[in-house]
Amino acid sequence: MLGSFAVLRKQSLLGDAISHAALPGIAIAFLITEAKDSNTLLLGALVSGLIGTFWIRGIITKTHLKSDTALGLILSLFFGFGMLLLTFIQKQPNANQAGLDKYLFGQAATLVESDVWMMAIVTAVCVFVLLLFWKEFKILLFDADYTKTLGFNTRFIDILITSFIVLAIVLGLQTVGVVLMSAMLLAPAAAARQWTNSLAKMVFLAALFGAFSGVFGTAISASQNNLSTGPVIVLVASVFVVFSFVFSPSRGLLFKQIRFIKNRRDLELHKTLAFMFHIAETHENISHPHSVKILNNFQGYTRGTLQKLVKKDYVTLDGNMWSLTEEGFKTASNLYNQQENDE
């Protein structure tokens, strides 16, 4: 759901960066508390995710490095640091250390009831805040300068959105893991974007797609041995995306291609008709018959287009000779006028 905002704000890869950046937080939280309480670990992840995000911001605004470099930099550096801490922890004499790396790849099966409650609560808070600040979010998304002139505190709203994205990511980490979290954030939103231009519908659809891929993914992975849940969920979400890309009515590739072909055919038909019109114009009698052969030099002409013109009653065929009908002449002259008018 929050992914919609990330996609529209062109910060899609932020999710990826944050999910990696959360790792040192988890490790440090573990080092400090020496316990594997999932809430403190998540808090650590949240803090380091936020630090990562703001450092990315700092790099982009303060230096001339571009956002992609900043993202890649923070992602790999934080992750590497996290790995260092994890291996360091493994060398520590502490029995609790095992299982920390489940955060790396996620394991939905290891979730316990309290985790699920936690997620439900956070989701509810997200929805609540989203509804509360709906207008502000929307306006900031599409026209940040305008928002500023209206007197909204853009910094605050910005930080609010970012924090919630980070929060959502950190929670998702347990389920699908670091690497696949970005797909969970992006895929439903990218799919939803193809079906609608309205933000409200898009957010709703994205939530729906996300939920469906979660359910289907879990079901598929449960039905077979040895299939980890996270990757299957991501694959299901990707299938949704591909499906949306191809079949969405207004933006989809399939319909675009159909429209494209149809336009080309229309154009060819019109070209042939216009060409015939020019020939017929030179004669007093518009239905004066001409040989089909003279059309051969003309590009737009095919046997098919001629047949179609006959079908539309614009042209009559008589053996190897063609002639324009009254209607055909009228349409063609209109066509010509239209072109002139357009110019």
Binding site: V7, S12, F245
Partner: peptide, 11 residues
């Protein structure tokens, strides 16, 4: 043209 470059990478 359906999505931006970064989204494409992320997908």
């Amino acid at each position: 043209g359906l999505v931006k470059e970064d989204t494409a990478i992320g997908l």
